[in-house]
Nucleic acid binder design. Structure first.
Lengths: 163, 163
DNA sequence: GAGTTTAGTTATGATACATAATTACACACA
DNA sequence: TGTGTGTAATTATGTATCATAACTAAACTC
């Protein structure tokens, strides 16, 4: 509709393919699930950072806080398995939460290789705030997709995980 | 419902919350679009690497090849705008494609600050192979979601981009 | 008690994303 | 015509996330 002439931007003088972004042909890319996932995730990530900026939590950190809060006493390996995080990458993430006073590790007497994880009182407060802020983001998403669309999307994404 | 006893795996001897991964309560996390996007993208990314391993192309590189092939003569800024890539990050990506002999940059006579991008013959060959391999991945995804589900997913993800 | 497995850590490397600063060029306009 | 402003590409940096391999200490097996 606007590719060849209609609403193109002024003359742009010279050479052929300067084109405004809308005129660029993505070809088969627009049908790639992976491409669409990336673009959507970028958008949601931007929303996340906007919503939780004041708390300085990364998405990964928030997910860990949630899981520890709901399952106190889990070991690091348990949390990693539940969230699909590599244990090696989990160590610094957890240490950051600990350094911020949000979580604690206690060596399990039953197996002194393992650490039982719990939130501090402060961790629970921060989590509650984070969830409240995050709720706003989810509301924006629901406004964008509709309640049914949102549910469908979650369902489809869950199916994709088992690819 | 299975936390305390029901379908827990064997005895697991000692301490409380060892739990098998399925027993971990994700709480509200399972309803976060961002979390579901991450898990789904990890899965699709693994499929991508599996499918295109032999070519050594990253998803970003493939997307750039597609766009250049369909829009020869675009400048770097044009491609960046079309794909949502930062220009600063595009430079090394493009240079890698150039080093591999897949793409070329020619200074635009009309504006010697800009580079017109094109694929080499070899680049077109590699792209054709890559698209064929990628097609298999998309087939797997369609097998997983169904044709309708796949179309729905793309539509929903596109809506999310405009969040 | 020796050999094997497991939890956590450390080290390292790749990919993506973001921002700020710099260089070279283009353009407008007085 | 020459100066100020804007833009294309680059460079440099910093961060988040994912992956692997190697190591330590503890636990388990037999």
């Amino acid at each position: 509709m606007n590719a060849a002439g209609a609403r193109t931007r002024a003359g742009r003088t010279a050479g052929a393919a300067q084109a405004d972004p809308l005129a660029v042909d993505l070809g088969p890319l627009g049908g790639f699930i992976g491409y669409r996932l990336r673009r959507a995730q970028l958008s949601v990530l931007a929303g996340f950072e906007l919503a939780l900026r004041e708390l300085g939590l990364t998405p990964g950190e928030l997910s860990v806080l949630v899981v520890i809060a709901r399952n106190p006493g889990l070991t690091q390996s348990d949390v990693c398995a539940a969230l699909g995080i590599q244990r090696a990458n989990f160590t610094p993430l957890l240490h950051a939460l600990e350094a911020d006073g949000l979580a604690i590790r206690e060596v399990l007497p039953a197996d002194r290789r393992s650490n039982a994880l719990r939130l501090t009182a402060h961790g629970r407060e921060v989590l509650a705030t984070a969830l409240a802020l995050h709720e706003r983001l989810e509301k924006r998403i629901t406004a964008c997709l509709g309640e049914a669309g949102r549910a469908q999307l979650i369902d489809l994404l869950r199916q994709l995980e088992t690819l």
